[in-house]
């Protein structure tokens, strides 16, 4: 993966900050931002959270821009869509194409939605870019989210990266042999790739079980509490 949020989450100035604090802060800020639905507050959140991500967590601005870029591109498109096709009320601008108009309502929808996402995205970024997933899952386990779900998620986590590595290698190998040369060959290559990964995943589920059993697994993942570092 070229853009690796997981890597950033493990290597920033806030990685070791209390995950409960980060999780609760994120959820609280998201709820407040949605509840207020105030344009000024949205801007305020965007600026404050961006400063925290860049200056406090010390995340490279390029990585942060990458985090924002994909949702933002999508956001702009959908907001233009909202602007042109939704709403009743007073017409405030006529595009002159196919009778498409901007109304007071549609402007309201588009602007508020745009700003709401703008205020919320950095909150998600704050959690996702500063906190390794495993820590969030451990929090959730202590917060009484069903254990079985957390255990499946924990076992999933490592496997995901093993598969992603394999896919990366296999895709390069297919590409080398012109596997993505045309539309139809792309499909066949992708199908072969995915089914191979699926068959491997079945083998992987067996070796995972062996690995767990070999070290005395009793059906439940034990929780390790690392020693607090003395300063």
């Amino acid at each position: 993966m070229k853009f690796d949020m997981d890597y950033i989450a493990h290597h920033n100035a806030l990685t070791e900050t209390n995950p409960y604090f980060k999780l609760f802060l994120t959820i609280l800020l998201l709820i407040v931002t949605l509840a207020l639905d105030n344009l000024y507050f949205d801007v305020f959140m965007f600026i404050v959270m961006s400063i925290i991500i860049l200056a406090v967590a010390k995340i490279n601005y390029k990585s942060y821009l990458k985090f924002l870029s994909l949702p933002m591109a999508f956001l702009v498109i959908t907001c233009i869509f909202l602007l042109l096709f939704f709403g009743k009320g007073e017409v405030i601008y006529e595009t002159g194409i196919l009778g498409i108009v901007v109304t007071t309502d549609s402007l309201h929808y588009a602007v508020y939605t745009f700003m709401r996402v703008l205020g919320c995205l950095p909150c998600l970024g704050f959690l996702a870019l500063t906190t390794p997933i495993a820590k969030i899952l451990n929090c959730l386990r202590n917060l009484k989210v069903p254990r079985i779900m957390i255990e499946i998620a924990l076992l999933m986590y490592n496997t995901i990266f093993i598969f992603l590595n394999e896919i990366d290698t296999m895709q390069k190998a297919q590409d080398t042999r012109l596997g993505y040369h045309s539309y139809w060959t792309s499909f066949k290559s992708l199908g072969a790739l995915v089914s191979t990964i699926f068959l491997r995943s079945l083998d992987k589920s067996e070796t995972l079980q062996f690995a767990l059993d070999s070290r005395g697994y009793n059906g439940e993942l034990p929780v390790y509490e690392p020693r607090k570092k003395e300063n």
Partner: peptide, 21 residues
Amino acid sequence: NPDDQIFAPTVEEDVAFGPLN
């Protein structure tokens, strides 16, 4: 293949797995 053996999200949790069991 260590990928077949290591499963925990962090190194210390993986090493602690056996002793905890």
